[in-house]
Amino acid sequence: MNKPLAEFIGTFTLVLFGCGSAVIAGGDIGLYGISFAFGLALIGMAYGIGHISGCHINPAVSLGAVAAGRMTISEAIVYIVSQIAGAIAAAAVLLMIASGKADYTVAANGLGQNGWGAGYLGEYSMGAAFVFELVATFLFVTVILGSTGAGAPVGFAGLAIGLTLVVIHLVGINVTGVSVNPARSIGPALFAGGAAIGQLWLFILAPILGALISGFLFRTGMLDIKN
């Protein structure tokens, strides 16, 4: 149970501190602070649980690893269940904390849920949201598979992956709030309800497609240093 537990804790940490930075401290730290909160949470978990489970903490990453031939689908399913459970638990804890402020409501203040369209951050279109999530996840998973593969510098994967997540957030927060991680989207959406649930499909489908494309390129040797 150590690997599923590590994935649960890692995803819990990412969602609690990443989404929490937006919900609790967003007005103080802004887009830059939120971006670094997500990236630093990932860096911390990469070095904290990476040696246990690989620190996927993201269903798209696990499916990308399956596509790359580095993980079986049965192993990925166990990871994904743990990741989604960790995200839901983190969203529940974040809601309890945020609700301790008298003027907080999920309807008015949100829970760090992803979205697009009228009334959501930069009000980008569904098409723009889909393209961003697919391409950003493809690049994110490419960094993950490349920095953890044979021939990559030892000990720097966590830093490279975390900083990539920072850059992705710097560019994409106003587009979708940045998912690149179906579990990260599922947790807050379940409690936010409404549009967050209705739009959740995009934040499941686009990241998975992006991850599968990256994994396929590694599996076929197109991005494999050995070939």
Rank of each mutant, 00 (worst) to 15 (best):
F38W: 12
G198W: 07
G86F: 05
Q83D: 08
I73R: 04
A157N: 08
L31A: 08
G50A: 11
Q83R: 05
G172F: 12
P59L: 06
F140L: 15
S21I: 08
S185M: 14
G127F: 05
V171I: 15
L16F: 07
A85E: 09
A157I: 06
S74V: 13
G10K: 03
G54I: 08
G30Y: 03
A22R: 03
T13M: 08
F8Y: 14
A189Q: 06
G149P: 12
A160Q: 10
A91L: 04
G44Y: 08
I77Y: 07
L217D: 12
H169F: 11
G112A: 00
A90M: 10
V180Q: 09
P188W: 11
L209G: 10
I77W: 04
S185G: 09
T164N: 13
G10D: 06
E123S: 12
G151C: 09
T137Y: 02
A150E: 15
V143S: 01
Y124C: 01
G112L: 10
G215P: 02
P182L: 13
I144H: 06
T13D: 01
G69R: 06
I77E: 00
F138W: 07
G26P: 04
V23M: 04
F8Q: 07
A136W: 09
A67R: 10
S147M: 15
F216D: 04
L139W: 07
S147K: 04
P153E: 11
G18F: 02
L170E: 07
A90W: 00
S214K: 01
G155V: 05
G177H: 08
V23L: 02
A65H: 03
F12I: 11
G155H: 13
A25W: 10
F38N: 00
L134D: 01
A108L: 04
L145N: 02
L134M: 15
Q83V: 10
L209P: 07
G33W: 06
S147C: 12
G151H: 09
F12S: 02
N2T: 09
A192F: 07
A68T: 12
I52P: 00
A189T: 06
V166A: 05
A211C: 13
I144D: 00
I204C: 05
Y32V: 15
S74N: 06
I29W: 03
G127I: 11
L159I: 15
A157H: 10
F17Q: 06
G64D: 01
G149H: 15
I52D: 05
I49E: 08
G177T: 03
E133H: 06
S147Q: 06
S125A: 02
F17T: 11
S74M: 10
W201V: 09
I73V: 13
A22T: 07
Y47S: 10
S185A: 15
S53W: 05
G155K: 13
I213T: 12
M45V: 14
Q83I: 11
A76V: 04
M126W: 07
G69F: 10
M71L: 15
L202D: 04
V178T: 15
I43F: 06
G198A: 11
